[in-house]
């Protein structure tokens, strides 16, 4: 892993995300102190740090669903607050919480995600959805309400979005939690495909990553 390059003064052409001077206070403590970095197309950035070092807080701020006390985040050179909807159309966020409804089946949950993702998405018909669920070994439980699935299976349902939605930036908060080895390998190969197509990934994980042909940049929080 290589250390992250310092912030460039002049943005390069394939710079996607630029973060400048993010600071977050939690009560009396300065959780994130003047954090700056940039992310270019095709880069993978792993945010590392101990529990409570602000990884989730940072990721939520990058997505625009968390508040920073100071700092500026730009997507393709424009502040994410000003062009929020355009930014969110190019963003895929997998949070701490799986983001799937326990009352609905895996199939129904994914259908909603595909519909909400908009018109530019490839048509997600049932055959495509079932194919993806089959790859994730979820076919036998595709019609069951998700609350009956195991934690790992629920995680797989939300990870299915990685292949069903087209987004440039993936922000993944602990995507490997409760996944088995096969699930881990599946995620790693999806990330390497995504990067090969010019997409970018920001993720947090405590598991070691082995992504073929991809250099994983590291951002240490302390």
């Amino acid at each position: 892993m290589s250390e992250l390059e310092p912030v460039h003064e002049s943005p390069s052409d394939n710079e996607l995300l630029s973060v400048q001077g993010i600071s977050v206070w939690r009560g009396e403590n300065l959780l994130l102190n003047d954090l700056s970095f940039t992310l270019e197309a095709g880069q993978v950035l792993q945010v590392r740090g101990a529990n409570g070092s602000g990884k989730t807080t940072l990721l939520r701020i990058l997505c625009g669903i968390g508040l920073a006390d100071d700092g500026d985040i730009k997507w393709r050179g424009e502040s994410i607050d000003r062009r929020r909807d355009q930014f969110h159309e190019e963003l895929l966020y997998l949070g701490h919480k799986a983001g799937i409804k326990g009352a609905l089946s895996a199939l129904e949950n994914l259908r909603i995600f595909c519909t909400l993702a908009g018109d530019e998405q490839p048509r997600a018909d049932d055959a495509t959805l079932l194919g993806v669920l089959d790859n994730l070994a979820l076919l036998p439980v595709a019609e069951l309400p998700c609350r009956h699935l195991s934690a790992g299976q629920q995680r797989r349902v939300s990870l299915a979005r990685l292949v069903l939605q087209t987004a440039t930036l993936w922000v993944l908060d602990e995507p490997l939690t409760s996944l088995d080895k096969a699930g881990l390998a599946w995620v790693e190969s999806r990330i390497s495909e995504h990067v090969a197509k010019g997409g970018s990934v920001i993720l947090t994980t405590h598991a070691p990553l082995h992504i073929d042909g991809v250099e994983v940049h590291a951002l240490e929080l302390n």
Partner: peptide, 15 residues
Amino acid sequence: FADGTLEQLLLSGQS
């Protein structure tokens, strides 16, 4: 809100 689907709705890029 509790199961995280609300934040996904917020991030869907829809109104």
